[in-house]
C-alpha cells in the first residue's frame, strides 16, 4: 500500500488577515474599543481586561522565537482526502479554501528555532486552518519534528490551538493521537524535555494527546482547555455549566497545568525552563 500520495492543489499563498480591517477593534472580553496599533504592540492582549485574542502561527513565531531563527521544515506536506469525505461540502474543497485563505499548507508549522539562543524544535498550530483540527498531516509533522529533536538532541515545544481531531479523516485522524503520543514517549525515553503551551481553544483529540503530555504545561489565561466541548457536555447532562468551567484557571485549580502565563511573559519563562533542563 502506498502511504504517500502525490497530489497538487496548485495553491496561491496569501497572507491571512488575523483581525478585521480598520484602525479600531472591539475587545471580545470587555467590549472596549481598542486602538489596533496599541493592541499589536501589546501582542494582541487587551490592555483593559487581559483578554488574549486568537493570533496566528506567524505571530507566535515572531513573539516566541529569536528574530530570524525559525527555520521551518516539512512545510510542503499537504492533506489529501483519503476517505473522499463529503459533509456539507467536500473535504478536498474545504482544504483548498483553507490553504487559499490562510496561505498555509496545514494547521501546524514545525521547525528549528532559538529562544534566547537556546535551540528548540518548535511546532505551532494555527486555528485559522480548519479550526486547528488534527488530521494525518498535523500528526505526521509533529512526529517528524519529534524525531528530528531526538536526532539533534533538542527540546520540543508544541503550541496548541485546536478544536480536536479532524472528523473528515475519520479514524485516520483518531490515530494521530496515538502516533504523536508514541513519538512523545520516544522523546521522553531519549531524556529530552517537552513543553506544551495550550492556547484558546485546546480541546478534543489534541488535548487528549500531546497537549496534556507536556513535562511542563503552560496555558494562556482564559483559554478553553478540555476533552469534551462545552456544548456536548451541556447537552449530555442537561444543565448549565459552572462559570469558568474548562478554562485555564479551572485546569490549574484541578492540577492539570503547571502555570498560566500572559503572552508577554511566555518567552522569558520558556528561557528559564530551557536553562533548567540544559544545566545537567
Amino acid at each position: 500500500m502506498s502511504w504517500f500520495k502525490r497530489e497538487s492543489f496548485g495553491l496561491v499563498p496569501q497572507e491571512k488577515k488575523e483581525l478585521p480591517d480598520g484602525l479600531w477593534i472591539k475587545c471580545e472580553g470587555c467590549n472596549e474599543i481598542i486602538y489596533k496599533k496599541e493592541l499589536d504592540k501589546n501582542l494582541y492582549v487587551c490592555m483593559k481586561c487581559n483578554h488574549h485574542f486568537t493570533i496566528n502561527s506567524k505571530t507566535y513565531i515572531k513573539i516566541l522565537m529569536d528574530d530570524g531563527t525559525f527555520n521551518e521544515f516539512n512545510d510542503q506536506i499537504q492533506s489529501v482526502d483519503p476517505l473522499k469525505f463529503k459533509g456539507t461540502r467536500r473535504y478536498a474543497e474545504q482544504l483548498k479554501t483553507a490553504m487559499k485563505k490562510t496561505g498555509l499548507n496545514e494547521a501546524i508549522r514545525t521547525g528549528f528555532g532559538q529562544i534566547n539562543h537556546h535551540d528548540v524544535v518548535f511546532c505551532v498550530m494555527d486555528f485559522s486552518f480548519i479550526g486547528g483540527s488534527m488530521g494525518s498531516v498535523v500528526g505526521e509533522k509533529i512526529s517528524r519534528a519529534i524525531q528530528l529533536a531526538i536526532e539533534r538532541h533538542m527540546p520540543v515545544i508544541i503550541l496548541s490551538t485546536s478544536g480536536g481531531a479532524r472528523m473528515m479523516e475519520g479514524a485516520l485522524s483518531l490515530m494521530q493521537m496515538a502516533k504523536t503520543s508514541a513519538y512523545l514517549a520516544k522523546l521522553s525515553d531519549a531524556g529530552l524535555p517537552y513543553i506544551s503551551i495550550c492556547t484558546n481553544p485546546t480541546t478534543g483529540g489534541v488535548s487528549a494527546s500531546y497537549a496534556m503530555l507536556g513535562d511542563i504545561i503552560i496555558a494562556e489565561p482564559g483559554a478553553l482547555i478540555g476533552f469534551a466541548g462545552p456544548r456536548v457536555i451541556k447537552q449530555t447532562i442537561g444543565q448549565d455549566l459552572p462559570p469558568g468551567f474548562q478554562r485555564s484557571e479551572f485546569m490549574l485549580d484541578h492540577g492539570f497545568i503547571d502555570v498560566i502565563l500572559n503572552r508577554q511573559e511566555i518567552k522569558e519563562k520558556l528561557t528559564q525552563i530551557l536553562e533548567f533542563f540544559e544545566a545537567q
Binding site: S181, A185, I233, P242
Partner: peptide, 24 residues
Amino acid sequence: YPGIGAEERGQAEAIAKNLFEMSH
C-alpha cells in the same frame, strides 16, 4: 463520558497518558 466530573478529574490527561504509556 462528557460530564463535569470527568473534566474536573482530567479526562483528556487520563486518555493522553494511556496513549503515551501503551505505546512503549
